[in-house]
Design a protein around this nucleic acid. Structure first.
Length: 380
DNA sequence: CCCTGTAATCAGATCACCGC
DNA sequence: GCGGTGATCTGATTACAGGG
């Protein structure tokens, strides 16, 4: 018995669609990849032809542009809006997208065209099988896919009308996802705008009686903050996770690098701001963690609201680009501080927006989950 | 000569260690 | 404790060799 997807569509008469046959992509598609004009020749670049890189196959804009001359004197190839683009090399390998623009591609991208298959359907099919494909063909540190590999792939396909029906159905969900994404962008813009107004003191909060808060005061860093010397594997807080271990963060403090059960260097201070070493990553912790490497800077407010200062830094990244390693710059700088009550109000106000943002992000994640679940049923 | 696939190279991030 | 430095890793792009 041939395996078929759990979920099948019906035609306009309510009948099952016919057709479910195995096809080799090479037999039903035509493919080509592009090239890169010599980068030493400046007359090849900054023209008006969008030059799509492998990370940009799903975007409607490109960073680089080619000139007609550049296109002509290289193996870069033109693709059209609606063509299926497939990333062959690098971290994006295995990603696919329907091109949103007319443009040129380099050798890391495979363009797939077909008169037989619905390309949107194929895009979803390839997306669904991404891990299987990369798992099978990417070897070692530098795995590359190739046109040969893609053309050799075999899949079972429903009939064209059913493909289109499935593709349109999934597109509707994609649209919903992009709608939520837009909402998220708007919220983030709103937050940015509000921060601008708050920190420029264009708007001020008032106390419970409707009275103005005192003027903001410049304060020295040391007046407000204490730093905690960071030792490798220093543990903050006594809380532990469900298996009795503390999360260990990597040096940038951006990722949990592992877990540990070291109990001997426990610190109870929270919340705390963490400056990742050699980066400007700033994180706010109320939960337990372990510093996974040395060089990290840890701050807590002894004379103010920690979270307020987090927003100060978020608004104006104190350590400028190029000075990533100079924590001392931060210590030497003075900061305008409102009184504690106003700090609290500001922190709460901005936190509320952050919570909304988190909510929409959750919505986005669950819609993506929903699509994933459907894909499980629609494809095998 | 063009196309394709693979390796080299580049750029940026991350990490460990060292000496003041 | 702090900053400096080089090694290493990872992702992304470019160069190039071999085949048709």
């Amino acid at each position: 018995m041939m395996a078929v997807p759990k979920l099948r569509f019906k035609d306009e008469h309510g009948e099952e669609f016919l057709g479910w046959e195995e096809k080799k992509l090479g037999d039903v598609c035509v493919t080509f990849s592009g090239g890169t004009p010599s980068v030493t020749n400046s007359t090849y670049y900054n023209g008006c032809i969008p030059f799509i890189k492998s990370g940009e196959i799903n975007k409607s804009y490109t960073e680089a542009f080619l000139t007609e001359k550049g296109l002509k004197n290289s193996s870069a190839k033109l693709v059209k809006k609606g063509d299926l683009l497939y990333a062959l090399y690098g971290a994006t390998s295995g990603e696919s997208g329907i091109s949103k623009i007319n443009g040129a591609i380099n050798q890391a991208i495979l363009c797939i065209k077909s008169d037989i298959l619905d390309l949107k359907y194929l895009k979803n099919l390839l997306c669904f099988n991404k891990n299987r494909i990369t798992g099978m063909y990417l070897q070692g540190g530098q795995g590359n896919l190739s046109a040969e590999i893609i053309k050799s792939l075999k899949f079972y396909f429903p009939s064209s009308p059913e493909q289109t029906k499935i593709a349109n159905f999934l597109s509707a969900i994609d649209e919903k996802i992009s709608h939520i994404n837009k909402k998220l962008d708007l919220l983030k813009q709103y937050k940015k705008g509000m921060m601008q107004k708050i920190f420029n003191q264009d708007i001020r909060f008032k106390d419970e009686n409707g009275e103005e808060f005192p003027e903001w005061e410049e304060k020295e860093f040391n007046n407000v903050f204490s730093t905690i010397p960071s030792k490798k594997y220093q543990i903050f807080s006594t809380e532990i996770n469900e298996v009795g271990q503390f999360p260990v963060l990597d040096q940038s403090q951006a990722l949990i690098a592992g877990y540990s059960d070291q109990q001997d260097k426990v610190c109870h201070i929270s919340p705390i701001i963490v400056f990742g070493d050699h980066t400007t990553v700033v994180k706010y912790f109320e939960k337990p963690f372990i510093v996974g490497a040395d060089g990290t800077k840890l701050l807590f407010c002894h004379n103010g609201i920690t979270k307020f200062f987090l927003y100060v830094i978020e608004f104006d990244p104190v350590i400028p680009e190029g000075y990533k390693r100079h924590f001392s710059l931060l210590r030497e700088k003075n900061f305008p501080f409102p009184c504690i009550e106003e700090q609290t109000k500001i922190a709460n106000f901005l936190s509320a927006i952050d919570e909304k943002i988190a909510l929409v992000e959750k919505q986005l994640a669950s819609t993506r989950e929903y699509k994933k679940g459907l894909m499980q049923q629609l494809f095998i």
